[in-house]
Amino acid sequence: MSYFSDIINGTKTLLTGMRVTGGYFFVNFFTKRDVITQQYPNNIETLEMFDRFKGEVIMLHNENNEHRCDACTLCEKACPNGSIEILGDKAKDPETGKNKRFLVKHIYHLQMCTMCGLCIEACPVNAIDWGQDFHHVEYDRSLLTKVLNKPGSKIMSGIKG
């Protein structure tokens, strides 16, 4: 007897569940009210990330192509997995006449970065920050190694070296 009552109860509860799914099906078929799916590759133009989104590490440049990095290598030391390499050099400062460190290349290995944010926290002059770009797909791993300072850029005046 319980065999038949099980079948009846099972069908009844199944229909209760199907009322939920059916409700969504019909409501969303006509109104698209609860649809949260994003049509990702098609909405690339309009997609906006949150302002704190951790896409990649970028170096901030002003309109005169000047950055704030003085090659102190604190970010390189803070990085847990060696994603940052800094190539710096020393040159004579024309104003003070002392030897001053300057940045040649800020190399960033995006393929090794875990987005932990320790480099950005460690930076004393806020030279690097998060970028919102997340389209990091490349055919070759080496293309993910980036030089963050733009070619021809130099240090902003007023930053201690």
Binding site: T13, G17, R19, T21
Partner: peptide, 8 residues
């Protein structure tokens, strides 16, 4: 409704 009360 959908899952917990479902006999199956």
């Amino acid at each position: 409704k959908l899952l917990t009360n479902n006999i199956i």
